[in-house]
Computed example of a mutant assay.
Amino acid sequence: MDHPIESGADGALPHADYRCGLVALAGRPNVGKSTLLNALIGFRLSIVSPRPQTTRHRILGIASSEAGQILYVDTPGLHRGAKRAMNRSLNRAARAAISDVDLVVQVIEAGRWTDEDEALYAALTEQKAPRLLVINKVDLSKDKAALLPFVATLSEQHDYDEIHYVSALKKKGLAELERAILARLPVRAPVYGEDEITDRSERFLAAEMVREQLMLRLDQELPYATTVEIEQFSDRPDGVAEIHAVIWVERDGQKAIVIGQGGAQLKAIGSAARRHMERLFERKVFLKLWVKVREGWVDDEAMLKKFGYTD
C-alpha cells in the first residue's frame, strides 16, 4: 500500500510535540474494526454490517486534534483457508496494510481468542511496529470479572505494549485508547487538512454504500457473490450528483434475488444507499442501479483488479 506520509505536508509542526502517523486496525473478520474506526474519527465512514467480509478495501480514516493527526487504516479481516481469489486478495491487502505503519492495533472480541486471532498475531510479530491489543464489545460481557483470567492468559502468551477495553458501539474507552496511540506516533507535521476525513473518493464511497445495503438486506451467502461498480458519477448543473452503479452477481438466480419481486428489493437497496450518500456528500443524489451477471468473477483475477481489489 502507498504510505500517505510520503506525500508529505509542508513540514511545519503546529507545536513541538505534534504527532502524526499511520495506525492499522487489524483483526479477524467481524470483530468490529469498522465500527471502531467510525467511532474514533467521529464519522460514519467505513460501512458496517453483522456479516464477515464487510470490509474489502483499505479505508483511511483521518482523526485530527490539537495533539496530532492519526491516520487510521481499516483493513480487511484475515481469513484462514482462503480458497477463492477474492479471499486471497483480501488477505494480501490486509498483510500489506500492516507492513507499512507506525503502530498496529489488533482488535478482538471480549472473551474470544481464535485460531485466526493467533494467526494475525503471528503476522504482527514479523513487523517492527509497536502493537496494542483492543478488546472490543466489552458491553456484551455480562460478567466483566470473567474477562480477567482471559486477559491474564493472553498477556502471559503474547507481547503487547498495552491492552485496552473498549465498546466501539457505545463509544466507551476510546479517549484512553487515542492517548495511547498518539504517545507512540512520531513527532511529525500533519499530512491532511484538519477538515479531511479520508483519502477515498466520493466515487469509491458511493460504491461502498450500495454494497453495505446488499450486506444488510440479502440473506446469508448471497452478499459474498456481489460487488458494486460505479459507471458514472457526475454533478449536474442543478447541483445533483448523478450516480449510475452496477451490482455484479455470479448467477442469474442471484440477479433475481437482488432485484426482488417487481423490483422491490432493488428499489429498497437504492433508496437506503441514496439517503446515506446525501448525508455524506451533502447534496442531492440521483442514483440508478442495474444488476448484471458475470460468472465466476470472485475467482477471476482480472475482474477483481477491474473492481478495485488490489493489494
Rank of each mutant, 00 (worst) to 15 (best):
L222G: 02
D300H: 10
R44N: 14
L174F: 01
S201T: 15
A26T: 15
E126S: 12
D159R: 12
G111Y: 14
K288E: 08
G253E: 05
P149E: 04
L289A: 05
Q69V: 09
F307T: 05
N87T: 09
V298S: 11
E242W: 06
L60M: 11
Q106E: 11
I98F: 06
G68F: 03
K284A: 14
K128M: 09
V191G: 09
S34I: 00
P50E: 09
Q213S: 00
A26I: 15
M277K: 02
D115R: 10
I59E: 07
L71V: 12
K170E: 15
R274K: 08
A180N: 01
L304A: 11
K305S: 13
E162L: 07
E126W: 03
I47N: 15
E196L: 07
K171D: 07
K83W: 03
E278S: 07
A39F: 10
S65W: 04
L36Y: 11
V134D: 02
R179N: 11
A24H: 08
A63V: 03
K284D: 03
G8P: 09
K171Y: 09
G253N: 13
A85P: 07
G308W: 05
D235Y: 01
A256N: 07
K33Q: 10
K171T: 09
I269N: 04
D300M: 04
I47D: 12
V187I: 11
A241R: 02
I181K: 02
Y72A: 08
E66R: 14
D117T: 15
K267H: 06
R279S: 06
V166W: 01
R95I: 08
R184M: 03
A96D: 06
G263Y: 01
L90I: 07
S49C: 01
R58G: 02
V151C: 02
L78H: 04
L222W: 01
V104S: 06
T54E: 02
D159V: 13
G296M: 06
A207F: 00
F43H: 14
D100P: 10
A85G: 10
G77R: 12
R88C: 08
W113D: 09
E242M: 06
P50V: 04
D115M: 06
A94W: 13
L37N: 08
R28W: 08
V104I: 15
K172G: 11
S234H: 03
